[in-house]
Nucleic acid binder design. Structure first.
Lengths: 188, 188
DNA sequence: CTAAAAAGCTAATGGCAATAGCTAAGGCTG
DNA sequence: CAGCCTTAGCTATTGCCATTAGCTTTTTAG
């Protein structure tokens, strides 16, 4: 029987494909095994457990997500940067709804790449505040506000939580305007 | 063998107890069966499936949550009402972290009590806007903003997503101040 | 008092994660 | 080039969970 030529990286790739095609909840070792043409227990040669695979997927997704936010923030400032980052954040979640939840997992402290990817993602949001003159302790609060707002909107939208027929795009624009108003008036 | 005297309501009560003691993810039919002193398949006499039980739990939790928000909003207006509703929202999630996720499930359209509980919860948030003179179409956007902000903050907090040592209580106060500023400046 | 409805049971199936232990592929060393 | 040893992959197995089928016993309605 010829070898499949797997590796931890290839297993994570397959896991991403499963998640993209069938959603975050469909990420099972059985599904990844089927996709890679291997028996389920064989995956344990490359991955310690399902939990560990989820964490690896989270690291890869967080890395990608951080890049998206950083590119959106680059070369922009103030309301301009806010709008660009907010739009990129929501677009990522809508285009890759299966991945988005993995961008929200708390990084494993034992995985430096994962930790630093998480810091980069938060850093991109943090960077938006510079244009508003918010810094120091106040910036921690403001970052939490922005993250909460964006994550809340996006996760309610993905879950189908906005029942009324009104335009969700329009509501998102208003949300970003509201965040802009809040940051303009931010104390400190 | 004496009967256990179960009913759909009693099964839901037991499910709530499981969720309170062991978290939302621990809600399994096996756990509910163990707690009610019955064999797992016996539960199917009272509940159609695990999915259906989760929906019943969601209806009960949403009902309770809506009451909490309504009582917080009652007799208050403007920033006062905003602060009270926000505090009640977060306090509920922190005190009953196993229940909170069930307050966010999209109601089953076939269950009128569930649908109306969901509408009451959204209505309590909607009511806060009256004091800001926000109405009509604009109020839909503003409600979505408030829900997003509160849900985002609370779910990040419960997930342990705020890594830095700064006070989360303080950040929440700032978040509510920010929402207040946004609503004062709300267009329409 | 009797019959049917309802509540509970055991047995069985199928999906999943995980472990143990075997086998064979392929690289490394002599 | 030969043999060894590391390691990828396999099958078999266990255990947990949801779900279905079909039986028994209690309770209730007539």
């Amino acid at each position: 029987m010829p070898r499949a030529g797997l590796s931890t990286g290839a297993v994570v790739e397959a896991a991403l494909a499963v998640v993209d095609e069938q959603g975050a909840a469909a990420l099972t070792l059985a599904a990844v095994a089927a996709r890679t043409g291997v028996a389920t227990p064989s995956l344990y040669k490359h991955v310690r457990s399902l939990e560990a695979l989820q964490q690896l997927v989270s690291a890869a997704v967080t890395e990608q997500f951080a890049g998206v936010l950083e590119r959106a923030a680059a070369g922009r400032a103030g309301a301009d940067a806010l709008r660009a980052v907010a739009a990129a954040y929501r677009a990522y979640a809508r285009e890759l709804p299966g991945r988005y939840p993995f961008a929200q997992r708390v990084p494993d402290p034992a995985d430096p790449a994962h930790v630093s990817a998480g810091e980069r993602a938060v850093g991109a949001i943090f960077a938006v505040l510079r244009g508003y003159g918010v810094a120091g302790e106040a910036a921690v609060d403001a970052t939490r506000m922005l993250r909460s707002t964006l994550h809340g909107f996006v996760s309610l939208e993905l879950a189908g939580g906005f029942g009324l027929p009104q335009s969700v795009d329009h509501s998102f624009d208003r949300l970003v305007d509201g965040a802009d108003a809040a940051l303009r008036a931010w104390p400190g």
